[in-house]
Simulated scan of single mutants.
Amino acid sequence: MFKHLSQIPGNVVAIRISGEIRDRENEQISRILEKEIAKSGRIRLLLVMDHYPSFNTAESLYDDLKFAKFYSDAIERMAVIGDKPWKKTWVALFGLFGGIQAEYFDRSAADAAWKWLSSG
């Protein structure tokens, strides 16, 4: 399940994910990204991961975030906010293999995520 957080200024697309992303939802998120990319050219992506059960392996993360991988050439940066520090490595690997500059932030560091996302 996901929710597009649409009140974000600039070229930032923010999405809250609170469960496994199914193919239909992946397509819906892809349409949101396409719309924002058409409007802004390049975007920055913020993913807020709430109680994400299938985020248990690096492979499941890569599969569930295929929408980001598909648009990697138009994503300048991707910040992921979550609740488990050990997921930082998986997000870094996703960024490496997906071709996206990606960083993981704990919920307590949400301000740092915003700062990193808007810098550079």
Rank of each mutant, 00 (worst) to 15 (best):
A92S: 11
E25W: 09
M1G: 10
E59P: 00
I100A: 01
S60H: 12
Q101R: 12
G41S: 01
Y71E: 15
L47C: 12
Q28W: 12
Y62K: 12
H4E: 09
K115H: 10
L96P: 00
D106C: 01
K88S: 09
V12N: 10
F97Y: 06
S108E: 14
K39R: 12
L45D: 10
K39T: 14
L117R: 06
V48F: 07
I15F: 05
D111K: 05
I21F: 00
H4Q: 08
R44K: 12
K69R: 15
D64K: 10
N11G: 10
N11V: 11
K66L: 10
K87H: 11
F55T: 07
R44H: 05
N26W: 06
A102P: 03
P9G: 12
I17N: 05
K3H: 09
S119M: 03
A79C: 05
S6Q: 13
K66T: 15
G99K: 02
I81N: 00
I43F: 02
I37K: 05
Q7G: 07
R16A: 09
E103M: 04
D50Q: 07
I43R: 01
G98H: 08
D73K: 05
R42D: 13
D73C: 00
N26T: 10
I81M: 00
T57H: 02
R107F: 02
A110W: 02
Y52H: 13
S30N: 10
E34T: 14
F2A: 02
R42G: 07
K115I: 11
K88M: 01
E27C: 01
L61P: 08
I8K: 14
N11Q: 13
S30T: 13
V80K: 07
I43E: 01
N26I: 05
Y52R: 13
E34I: 07
A92F: 01
M1T: 08
G41Y: 03
Y52N: 15
F94E: 06
L46W: 11
E34Q: 14
I29A: 07
F67L: 08
V48N: 10
S60L: 15
M78W: 00
W90S: 03
F70N: 09
G99M: 01
S18M: 12
G120M: 02
S18Q: 15
A38N: 07
G10K: 05
L46F: 08
D106E: 11
S60T: 15
A38H: 03
L96S: 07
N11F: 04
K88Y: 04
W86P: 04
E34V: 11
S18Y: 14
G82R: 11
F70Y: 14
N56K: 14
F67N: 10
D111E: 14
A109W: 00
P9K: 12
G10E: 11
L47N: 10
K87C: 02
F97C: 04
S40I: 06
K88W: 02
A68S: 08
A74Y: 09
E20D: 15
R77N: 13
K39Q: 09
